[in-house]
Design a protein around this nucleic acid. Sequence first.
DNA 1: TCTGGGGTCCTAGGACCC
DNA 2: TCTGGGGTCCTAGGACCC
Length: 415
Amino acid sequence: MLALVDCNSFYASCEQVFRPDLRGKPIVVLSNNDGCIVARNREVKALGIPGLEPYFKLEPLLKKHNVHVFSSNYELYADLSSRVMDVASSFSPDVEIYSIDELFLSLDGMKCDLNQYAKKIRKTIWRHVRVPVSVGVAPTKTLSKIANHTAKKYLGLKGVCILDNPKKWKSILKKIPISDVWGVGRRLTERLIECGVITASDLAQQSPESMRKLFNINIERTVRELNGEVCIPIEEEAEPRKQIFSTRTFGHRIYDLSELQQSISTYTTRACEKLRKQESLVNVATVFIQTSRFDDLRYLRSKIVRMPYATNDTGLIVNQLNRKVKDLFIKGLPYYKAGVGFIDLSNQYNQQMSLFDNHQPSRRTRLMEVVDSINSKKYGSIQLASNGINQDWKMRRLKRSPSYTTKWNEIPTIK
DNA sequence: TCTGGGGTCCTAGGACCC
DNA sequence: TCTGGGGTCCTAGGACCC
């Protein structure tokens, strides 16, 4: 058996941890740049306010209902997330942290009442971190997602749902629309409904082989998982990413090549940190700049860049990419977003060397290690001048709450 | 004043070469 | 009148997740 522990409207719950006065009040959290609503708590959902909609469109409605609005505060969420993960991880030797707000726990070999155990997980996390979670228990990841979804939906279940035999999950699956199944998105929903597959139960009854032929191997896995057959195992060691991206929309439209290059330099720095963390080197990268799809002048161009050798050297990569930005840049356009992606990676310790190829000088490798170790103590202590000083293009976060747990001068005080 | 997320993986199709 | 292969690289965009 497998437990999926998932925080309830995580970002909104984080905003309440140090603001007990907001308990029971409606709260939304906005995406980067205060663009879209990305988290709504139960009270907001009850008002019928939709998620992933532009904030400026819903602002009047939110004001009318006295909804509390927060910019995203990733410093706070990341810190509270790691506390939730620490506490939850103490309940199983085998865990997989799946995203910032959810993790899978293997309960194999546990000789205990699953319902009692799930309740204890929930209660302990609340006591230690003051973040509410729901726990879904089932034999496969896909079913535990459904169990978790059910635990959240029916208040009477008190945040816990156990689907440990076919009889239990079969009756639940009939009530779950196909679009709520993990791995089934908007497009697949349309196509499945055309085939008469409306509920999760309908999908579970399809033959896995024919689903593979009609769609792809992932749907086959979903069908099998809905029947209790494990196809997607717990991965304790995160597989290294095959691609690494860092992209952002700007705080406002920018027109200036040097500002674009500052942003590319900053995003490349971030991508390089992810790259070194997973002990990879980049062979091929891509860089893009674009205008908004809502502006009259649509422009999106990207460029593939081959590195002279497999590298994790921020300085070298920034230099290579910023040269290409110059080629992509057209004067006079209102740029809205830019980004970099490392699309061909190899392992740092498993390089196929050639007698004549260049490779990264070892002093550069050591330099990167030193930079990372300095920045691990205080992020941003040391960075390239090419990132810019003022960074006027950076995103807006006008309604950000304090970083209560990660900045000395923002620690809450008790009067 | 003006506002519209970010990340990973995958694939269709065009350009180019032989 | 319309057709005629195979491989690689690159770009654009889609699908899904949170």
